[in-house]
Amino acid sequence: MGEIQIAEERCKGCGLCIDVCPRGLISFSEDLNEKGYTYVRFDGDPAQCTGCTMCATACPDQGIEVWNKAGKQTFVNTTGLTERMTHYCPGCTHGMIHRITAECLEELDLLPRAVGVAPVGCSVLAYEYFNIDMFEAAHGRAPAVATGAKRARPECIVFTYQGDGDLVSIGGNEILHAANRGEKITVIFVNNAIYGMTGGQMAPTTLAGQRTTTCPDGRDVEETGHPIRMAELLATLQTPAFVARGSSHDPKHLLKTKKLIKQAFQHQRDGTCFSFIEVLSTCPTNWGLAPQESCDWVQDHMIPQFPLGILKEPERATAEVSG
């Protein structure tokens, strides 16, 4: 028999944990929490819970901790994040991507020398959530700020955390050249195919036919071009060492993505050059979909356009150079 503890006050009622629980042991309460959300609660048979941690993994808000049958805590909130509640919408996977990034730093014992660079966009306040030294950069300029930071203090682990408007659109030049110079930094690129912060406008990664407030009839690729596959684009460069794409739409993919991020930080720690992890994510609010529907939309629509996997890694880069 496992056990989970749900921090009601942290719950935004996205319900992702309900959907991922293999035994259907979590459901919405009828009450509202302080913030006005219909929070979730464990209401199944405690004997049924295996302590599998799926619910905690899927929670964007650090709201669930888990113990296994032996009474050992199997899911602990990372110390790499502050306890502050994020401002992200219910079901937005930014929270999970923050968490796995912080977990990687913690597990590699890199938190004391990690310096993050927050972007402009939905994750502009990332400096409030990562429990490390942080910059808040101008729109799109995070890779340039990270370049300066890493060059100034090479002993630090420097990463940027950027969205699609910030990285692909206004910061297209900065990311391209930081990658091409092989700056020894790590870039976490969160792609949800829309501008979230400004309220749902077309992004460079918006899918063909996808509706946004600035392409209300759906993105017309004849007029606005096709969505940019940033990971593929950077992988064409000779310099970057590690380029990969993962997703955050379910626990399985999230854990795979975490491995990628961990590899990226290991590469930086070991002095290998530039690493880039694109992470597909959701925007329930601006897509106009429920949280779980959003996750399904990533699976059904985004992954075909943005295939997952490692596009480039150091061994291969070396092989290319020597070949």
Binding site: G148, A149, A152, E174
Partner: peptide
């Protein structure tokens, strides 16, 4: 890659 980038690199280094 540009003056936009160079001043932001300065920001990064100065911040360190």
């Amino acid at each position: 890659e540009s003056e936009v980038a160079s001043i932001n690199m300065v920001m990064g280094a100065a911040g360190m």
